[in-house]
């Protein structure tokens, strides 16, 4: 579904979240302003620490109006008596079932492996994140992992469509069907069937999650598009982030039938560096570029991502996570200067 547009402008929900969220979304806001991007922000400030699960309602309502959002990460309190993850609550309420994270080596960032270019597409609404748990008797806890054919087929189709649109060769289902024969077996079979029946031009592959993890650090170039249940996506996504230089570099998005919420692909809040003006806003900037493409504003997206990559490649104004010494705002300014010079 396409978002509403008034007088050539889009209203987008902006959710800074916790940790470094404010700083990195500020970076995007100032770049958009400097570029005169036709986007108006509707900011929803909620903290994952304070709000109850119902607190997420404000964000849900705004997104229902605007259809599109740019989001940081909410911190999840570890306290067992509190509410669970607002991030999960939001994804479930909006049924933004497909999480996409892009892991592509960034020229200028020193890493052990080069030419990494893999995509993790992750089911966002069921599996290990069902939240269904109980303590049957004291000291015995059951946690339910729910896998369904409907949702496995749906994420499979999404992954193959993504592969088609983005000129990818293969889609590989990541699973642990040798142990969870029914649950992960269902997931793997759904992906295989959807691929074989509906997408003959894309190759279908399978890999067991532990092997995938080992292979990913030894020979990451072998991977193309990976499609995963919820938990394995988190694991492979963090491997991917580390491979290309850290969570500050990974763009991502969550898609449903109606809504799209763009958020950094490796979902780290960065509480430890909050408010220090040192966070790398690249992940958020590149996520916002994905958003612009989604809105049909590809020309803006091209300019902004090119400027960002150029500043990183030059290496004069990069943040400390990738070996530089510039602040978030200095890096942002360098991008804006670059854009003005184009």
């Amino acid at each position: 579904l396409l978002p509403k547009k008034y007088g050539g402008r889009y209203t987008v929900t902006l959710i800074p979240g916790d940790g470094v969220g404010k700083e990195v979304t500020d970076s995007v806001v100032s770049i958009f302003k400097s570029e005169n991007v036709p986007v108006d922000w509707e900011t929803v400030e909620i903290s994952g620490n304070l709000e109850s699960q119902e607190g997420v309602q404000k964000a849900v309502e705004s997104l229902k109006r605007n259809k599109v959002g740019l989001k940081g990460i909410w911190h999840t309190p570890m306290d067992q008596t509190g509410h669970g993850s607002l991030n999960v609550a939001l994804r479930k309420q909006l049924d933004i079932f497909a999480n996409v994270a892009l892991f592509k080596s960034v020229p200028g960032v020193k890493t052990r492996h080069s030419n990494v270019d893999l995509v993790v597409i992750r089911e966002n609404t069921e599996g290990e994140y069902s939240g269904l748990e109980h303590e049957s008797v004291p000291g015995v806890v059951e946690s339910l992992k729910i896998m369904t054919k409907v949702k496995s087929d749906r994420i499979g189709r999404f992954a193959f469509d993504f592969a088609l649109k983005n000129n990818r060769k293969s889609v590989c289902a990541v699973h642990k069907a040798n142990i969870m024969k029914l649950g992960d077996g269902l997931f793997r079979n759904c992906i295989n069937e959807v691929g074989a029946k509906e997408y003959p031009e894309i190759e279908v592959k399978n890999i067991i999650v532990d092997n995938a993890s080992m292979q990913a650090v030894a020979k990451p170039q072998q991977f193309d598009v990976l499609v995963t249940p919820n938990l394995y996506g988190s694991i492979l996504g963090n491997i991917g982030a580390a491979l290309i230089g850290g969570p500050g570099l990974v763009p991502g998005a969550n898609f449903g039938r109606e809504f799209a919420v763009f958020e950094p692909g490796s979902r780290h809040v960065g509480m430890d560096i909050k408010g220090q003006n040192v966070a790398n806003p690249t992940a958020m900037i590149l996520s916002s570029a994905l958003m612009l493409r989604h809105l049909g504003l590809a020309a803006y997206a091209e300019r902004i991502s090119k400027a960002t990559y150029d500043v990183i490649a030059e290496g004069k104004a990069t943040t400390q996570d990738i070996g530089g010494s510039s602040s978030t705002t200095e890096f942002t300014k360098a991008i804006i200067d670059k854009l003005k010079a184009f």
């Binding site: 290990e128 059951e142 946690s143 992992k145 896998m147």
Partner: peptide
Amino acid sequence: GEYSGIEHVIVPGVVQSIKLITQD
């Protein structure tokens, strides 16, 4: 844990796998 081997099909197309964590 996830290897408890307790799994079942609740209705066709819906599978529940149980992760079991015990104090002992």
